[in-house]
Amino acid sequence: MSASRLFSPLPDLIAQRGNSEDYPENTLPALRSALELGARHLQFDVQLTADRRPVLLNDANLKRMAGLNRNALEMTWRELVEIAVTEPERFGDKYSDIGVPMLAQAASLLGTHPAVTAFVEIKRASLRVFGAEVVVRKICEVLKPVVRQCVLVSRDLTAVHQVRQLSSCRVGWILSEYSNLSALKSEALVPDYLLCDHELLTETNAQLWRGPWRWAIHNVTSREAAAQLATRGARLVGTTSFRKVLREFRSARAS
């Protein structure tokens, strides 16, 4: 078997939460680093502050990111801007002055890279606190200048429907389970993208559901796994080890 046959096809890579291998996730340094490495697709998470400001943050609680046992959704932007999000358990004291970015800052950065697509995840914690209409409206307002570069995604179907009502943005549904029921819901929703953690794919060789959507599989850690998923129908794979997997991709394509 030839090298090109062995190493192809390879899907496109998504830098999950930026270059979160080298920098605290969902921060501007992580996003900038991923772009500098050549990322064509980014993914980041969005929550709302108490005063309804969209910010990049995965966990509502700041314990993991800042070593602070506080709920960011109960803090105003003025309070949150004072907090350093340095992932102390992972990076120790390597970083000391990285803060929670506003979604507007990420959108501004995205606008300087017009060929890049961003998967913007609307987190359930904010949806529960503020309601889908408020959260989606606030996010869509900020992303309006870069709407063509964005895909708004969520595990919450109500939020996905709200995006369609309020914006021309492409949408994606993140599966909580890879099941027949989810397949039926996908056929009814007809999203632009279906997203799924690779660990939910229990069958190792079966083709992913066919439809008008594109598949993006998250938390992929190697070129081998990415190539196998591509043969099943995945067009994109997301990784939190972006530098490592990108290096493997480039090595394979050079062979």
Rank of each mutant, 00 (worst) to 15 (best):
S96M: 13
L37T: 01
C140D: 05
I139N: 05
A34D: 03
N219K: 10
P9D: 05
A118T: 02
Y178W: 15
P24M: 01
P29K: 09
Q149L: 06
R247Y: 15
N26D: 08
A252W: 09
A183Q: 12
S33P: 11
A227Y: 11
A125Y: 03
N219L: 05
N69D: 12
T240Y: 11
N58F: 10
L194N: 00
K244T: 11
L236E: 03
D192M: 12
A115L: 15
A159D: 11
R223K: 14
R64D: 02
N61Y: 10
L80N: 03
S108Q: 11
S186Q: 01
T86F: 00
R70A: 13
D97L: 09
G131Y: 12
S251Q: 11
S96K: 12
R247M: 09
E21M: 04
R137E: 10
V136D: 12
P9S: 06
T117M: 06
A118R: 00
I98Y: 06
E36H: 14
R137G: 14
V129L: 15
A252E: 13
G38V: 11
V46H: 00
R64H: 05
T86Y: 07
E177A: 07
R40F: 05
V81A: 15
V220Q: 05
P145I: 00
Y178S: 01
Q165M: 13
T158F: 06
R164A: 10
M102V: 09
L110E: 01
A50W: 03
L35I: 01
S251V: 13
P212N: 02
V147P: 08
P11A: 01
L189C: 11
R155N: 11
R164T: 09
L6M: 12
V100R: 08
L35K: 00
A216G: 09
F130P: 14
P54N: 01
G111M: 12
A206T: 12
L201K: 06
D51Q: 05
R247D: 14
L166T: 12
L10K: 14
V120L: 10
